[in-house]
Amino acid sequence: QLGVSYRSAWLMKHKILEAMRVAEGDRKLDGRIEVDDAYFGGEFCGGKTGRGTDNKVPFVAAVQTSPEGHPLYACLSAQPPTSEAMRAFAARHIAPSATVVSDGLWCFRAATRVGAQHERVVTGGGKASMKLPQFKAVNTLLGNLKTAITGTYHAFDFAKYAHRYLAEFQFRFNRRFDMKTILPRLLQSLLAAPPSPEHWLRTAEVAR
């Protein structure tokens, strides 16, 4: 009976997360956008460090800011930091009139493929790069994201379900200005979402 209860709770949680993902699937950012790559997952003893590290799932975070640098909206995507993946991300989530601000990782130039401007800031890496004012919004978001997930969930399968947990954070972040409407809008998203049977929910995004 405990197993059935756990299964029901898991299904309900992932149906909600999936509805959030669908609701945010076509989010388009415009204006000034800070973008960076990051990773989900724990340390892997003896493995590589930094970009390309073992036992971690890469994702991209993009934050639309006001002209003063205040965060407005965000898009999060579980994907590798490659030019091909960034071209697909830009085509779906970045408006041609946007200006994308990124670090020295060259894949972010793919934003220019959709007509957006690209400003490359060479950070030099390390903790000092996280203090640069050009990336304050995206660095703050990444810190809040990791704190929220590690503080809420003991563990989950990053490789299979990172896309849904990112969507959950994105859904809440993009609706934070009107907290009273979050629950009604979530219910609307659940009603509008396509059917999501258990076998589909348990399939990794990359395998679909």
Score class of each variant (00 low, 15 high):
residue 110 A to H: 07
residue 62 A to N: 05
residue 77 S to G: 05
residue 99 T to A: 08
residue 101 V to C: 07
residue 115 G to K: 10
residue 83 S to E: 14
residue 75 C to Y: 02
residue 108 F to R: 08
residue 121 V to C: 05
residue 129 S to P: 07
residue 94 I to S: 03
residue 131 K to R: 13
residue 98 A to T: 04
residue 104 G to H: 01
residue 116 A to M: 04
residue 79 Q to N: 07
residue 74 A to H: 08
residue 98 A to L: 09
residue 92 R to C: 09
residue 124 G to R: 04
residue 85 A to L: 04
residue 71 P to G: 09
residue 63 V to A: 04
residue 132 L to Q: 11
residue 109 R to K: 15
residue 124 G to F: 09
residue 99 T to F: 03
residue 118 H to R: 05
residue 123 T to H: 06
residue 110 A to P: 10
residue 76 L to C: 00
residue 117 Q to R: 15
residue 104 G to Q: 00
residue 132 L to A: 02
residue 72 L to D: 05
residue 71 P to E: 07
residue 62 A to S: 06
residue 116 A to C: 02
residue 71 P to C: 11
residue 94 I to N: 05
residue 114 V to C: 03
residue 112 T to I: 02
residue 92 R to L: 11
residue 79 Q to P: 06
residue 71 P to R: 09
residue 112 T to Q: 15
residue 127 K to P: 12
residue 69 G to W: 05
residue 132 L to N: 11
residue 74 A to K: 04
residue 74 A to V: 10
residue 128 A to Y: 07
residue 78 A to T: 10
residue 63 V to Q: 06
residue 79 Q to Y: 02
residue 87 R to C: 14
residue 130 M to Y: 14
residue 65 T to S: 05
residue 119 E to S: 04
residue 102 S to L: 00
residue 62 A to T: 00
residue 81 P to T: 05
residue 114 V to I: 11
residue 115 G to W: 06
residue 94 I to C: 01
residue 104 G to V: 00
residue 124 G to W: 06
residue 75 C to M: 12
